[in-house]
Design a protein around this nucleic acid. Structure first.
Lengths: 247, 247
DNA sequence: CTAGTGCACTGGTCGGACCAGTAGGCTCAG
DNA sequence: CTGAGCCTACTGGTCCGACCAGTGCACTAG
């Protein structure tokens, strides 16, 4: 039976074809963020499909964070700049459906953050170093509400200084998931003030190591800082996996 | 003007409400993988919306990888077990839209893989160790086509042994993106055979370190292995960022 | 020249219709 | 009685036409 090898045919829905074409146009750059798609009624002419089909395609594109539509807008749907929103959404789903433990999430943060800081120690510019210092300064001055925001700014500066956009995005996504998970616990911590003080000291040590260009030290300090800050919220049995990263 | 502080109202579309309810049911576990949703015509009764609205909601849920529908199926849409497909999709989009360089992707793999191997060195079971050895054995015996599959199996065994599902999923997603990016270049490499040999040796060294429980060594070897295998495909100017991880 | 008002469009939702496909019950020949 | 085949009652995919509330712009009235 040496006949031609046939491939299984995949029935492809009309709306998927529409999605593919628009997606291709966006990812190839022929549609840039800020530009507008034609109106639904015109798209149905261009694609020769019904409006229902166009709309289902737009729903998918919207779910992927590529476009946004607004009722009454005389222009069509807007092509969006990339946001990690879709990534965030699917990772949040992963966290819930795959039952990711807080320990796994924190461990992942330790990995990403320490790697970012390791890279930042070599690649950081003076401006980025200044940003980190400013963020820590704000942590010191801030009340309990502003503390978190300044902390985010610090870690974001680190992530940007790593020069790796993927690290930056993933750091951001995982951090927000972790923060959401334990926001109320953190706010209720009795020794909140002490934790904040300790965290600030740790951050300053990390900055010092980054300034000195000692990546491995900075990475180690960063892991330690993360562990000390979050370990209390992780079940005792799972802390060992976190400590495995502390050497 | 000390009146009540009003919150801005967010107009929420009908199909979003439907998505929210189904998503909540799935993530909370009241709908398990394999179970079926009601048919579209029944859902429109349950939610008191039109079929168009139900269908748009289902498109979104499908785009997020939560359900799948099949024409003619007497049961409704099927609730899917979690797959990283949605994560994969959004990360692929990120790679294209944010113009992630190959260097960034490989760097991310180095970070994840070395962290996984660091953890695996402490947490691996004997079975997982055996899996890694078997995978390397298959790499040795395999032809050029089977080599890649065995390599995937090896890295997946490492990732599983790390005990962190998030690391496992991200490793998988990023690897497939990298592989797709340079599949043709790898196949066309003139010294393919030599690269494969070297890669096998590196893998065996990593296994030895994992068996010995020397996590830091295993991690270092793993980064080196990844660098040696992929550096040739990374533009020279960007290799420095990769080497920053080699210490 | 400006403030206000329509108007012509937009997306969101609805209802009905048809088609191709599926699964399972039913019939009928053996 | 048993098995193979058909038939029917569904399914999802697609199309059409309609209505509504919202938006931006041009035009008008002051």
């Amino acid at each position: 039976m040496g006949g031609p090898r046939f491939e299984p045919v995949r029935t492809v829905r009309a709306y998927e074809r529409v999605v593919e074409q628009v997606e291709e146009a966006i990812e190839s750059g022929s549609l840039s963020p800020g530009e507008r798609l034609a109106s639904e009624r015109e798209l149905m002419v261009q694609f020769s499909v019904s409006r229902s089909t166009v709309r289902e395609a737009l729903r998918v594109l919207q779910a992927r964070g590529l476009v946004r539509s607004r009722p009454g807008d005389p222009n069509g749907a807007e092509v969006l700049p990339f946001t990690p929103a879709a990534l965030h959404k699917s990772m949040t789903t992963l966290a819930r459906v795959a039952e990711l433990s807080l320990a796994e999430l924190v461990q992942f943060r330790m990995v990403l953050d320490s790697s970012a800081v390791l890279l930042a120690a070599r690649l950081r510019t003076e401006e980025q170093l200044a940003e980190m210092s400013q963020a820590v300064a704000r942590m010191r001055e801030a009340d309990e509400a502003g503390f978190g925001a300044a902390d985010v700014a610090f870690h974001d500066a680190i992530a940007r200084a790593s020069g790796n956009k993927l690290i930056q995005v993933c750091t951001d996504v995982v951090r927000s998931i972790v923060v959401k998970l334990i926001a109320e616990k953190i706010a209720a911590a009795p020794d909140r003030r002490a934790l904040m003080e300790q965290s600030i000291r740790h951050h300053e040590e990390v900055i010092a190591a980054v300034r000195a260009g000692d990546g491995p030290l900075a990475a180690r300090l960063s892991r330690k800082a993360m562990y000390d800050y979050y370990a209390a919220y992780v079940p005792v049995a799972e802390r060992a996996a976190l400590r495995a990263l502390l050497e």
